[in-house]
Computed example of a mutant assay.
Amino acid sequence: MEFYTLENKNGLKLKLTNFGGIVSEIHVPDRDGKMADITLGFDTIDEYVDHNDAYFGALIGRYGNRIGGCKFPLDGKEIGGLYTNSGEADHLHGGKVGFDKVEWTAEEVSGDGYTGVKLSYTSVDGEEGYPGKLDCTVVYKLTDDNEWVIEYEAVTDKPTVFNPTNHAYFNLAGHDGASPTNHEMLINAAFYTPTDDGGIPTGEILSVEGSDMDFREARVYGETIDSEESYISRLGGYDHNWILDKQYGELGLAAIAYDPVSGREMKCFTTEPGVQFYGGNFLDGSLTGKGGKVYNKREGFCLETQHFPDSPNKGHFPATTLRPGEVFKSKTVYRFGVR
Rank of each mutant, 00 (worst) to 15 (best):
H91G: 04
H93V: 09
N146M: 01
Y130K: 06
F99R: 03
D100C: 03
L92T: 01
M185I: 15
L119Y: 03
P131K: 09
L186R: 14
V117Y: 04
Y169K: 03
T195M: 13
G94A: 08
T143R: 09
E184G: 14
F99V: 05
V138R: 13
P164M: 07
G113H: 02
Y169H: 02
N188V: 06
F191T: 15
E184W: 10
A168E: 12
D145W: 04
D196C: 12
V109D: 00
A154N: 12
K118N: 12
D196L: 13
V149F: 04
V124W: 01
T156W: 00
A168P: 02
E147Q: 12
Y192D: 12
W148L: 12
D197K: 15
T122S: 13
D90A: 09
V149G: 07
G98Y: 04
K96F: 03
L119W: 02
T202E: 06
D176Q: 06
A189E: 09
E128N: 15
L142I: 13
D125S: 06
S120H: 10
F162S: 10
A154K: 08
K158I: 00
D112N: 14
N163A: 01
V139C: 14
I187W: 06
H167P: 01
M185L: 15
G126T: 11
A190L: 06
V117I: 15
T160K: 02
Y192M: 09
H167C: 01
Y130Q: 12
D145T: 09
T193L: 15
V117S: 06
K118H: 00
T122V: 15
Y130I: 11
D90F: 02
G95N: 08
G126W: 05
V161G: 04
E204W: 00
F170Y: 07
T122M: 09
T202L: 13
E184A: 04
V109P: 04
K141Q: 15
P131A: 10
A168N: 08
I187F: 10
D144Q: 10
T122G: 04
Y140P: 12
Y140A: 14
A89V: 00
M185G: 03
E108T: 13
N146I: 01
D144C: 08
I150A: 03
P201I: 14
E108Y: 00
S123A: 14
T160H: 01
P164R: 03
V117D: 06
E108F: 00
N85P: 05
G87R: 05
L92G: 10
E151L: 07
S86K: 11
K118D: 01
G95A: 06
D125Y: 05
P180R: 09
L142W: 07
